[in-house]
Design a protein around this nucleic acid. Structure first.
Lengths: 100, 100
DNA sequence: CTGATATTTCTACTTTTGTGGAAATATAAA
DNA sequence: TTTATATTTCCACAAAAGTAGAAATATCAG
């Protein structure tokens, strides 16, 4: 994973509203949660919510699929896993075994 | 860890320059790296660098200690660990064993 | 004390984000 | 086709972040 991509993803998660959205989606699981449900949960105007969701989608952390009038959003777990791996690999101590 | 704190820390890491700084500090290890070294490495004006470092310090991801004229910066690994744990606990799937 | 080095603070400016009302679009139901 | 529902796009504005030169501060060496 490129440092730029990691930074972009963290910038998007680095906003309380968007992080709340993502966390809510995680609770909702793989089948996804309607945008309207998120709106009801977080209690913010649709246009604002839409804006935040599209940013999460833009960096690949959220995927969407429509069923009729309803747009379902689901977290892209693999992306978050990659991000966590980046942080562990690039930003943590790597102590060689039996040193200490 | 509070969601607000997690968001703040990610917002700070969510900037290529700051993430580069942090990663460079990780390479430098616990004893810390002089601000001047970071500046030489990243090649940005001192005032800009100082600004970014102080943001990382503000959220606890970096600590500083002065030795003479030189200010050493070091990553606060425990904070990043907490952040990673937050992501794993709050934003990943938690499949109960033997389900699948 | 004077000068050199290391880093920050001040200041000003540009760019990016965040926010939300209103209008537009998409889809389904009557 | 009219109407209702779900969500987005457009627009305008306010707030925050990023950038960097210049001046200030801190510390050491002579």
């Amino acid at each position: 994973m490129q440092i730029k991509d990691a930074a972009k993803q963290m910038a998007e998660l680095g906003h309380t509203t968007r992080l709340s959205i993502f966390r809510y989606l995680v609770k909702g699981g793989r089948q996804g949660v309607p945008v309207g449900d998120i709106q009801a949960e977080l209690n913010i105007p649709g246009s604002t919510l839409s804006h935040h969701i599209s940013r999460l989608v833009a960096v690949g952390l959220v995927i969407q699929c429509r069923k009729g009038r309803t747009l379902y959003c689901a977290p892209q777990y693999s992306k978050l896993d990659e991000l966590i791996d980046f942080l562990k690999d690039e930003c943590c101590i790597h102590e060689t075994a039996a040193e200490d």
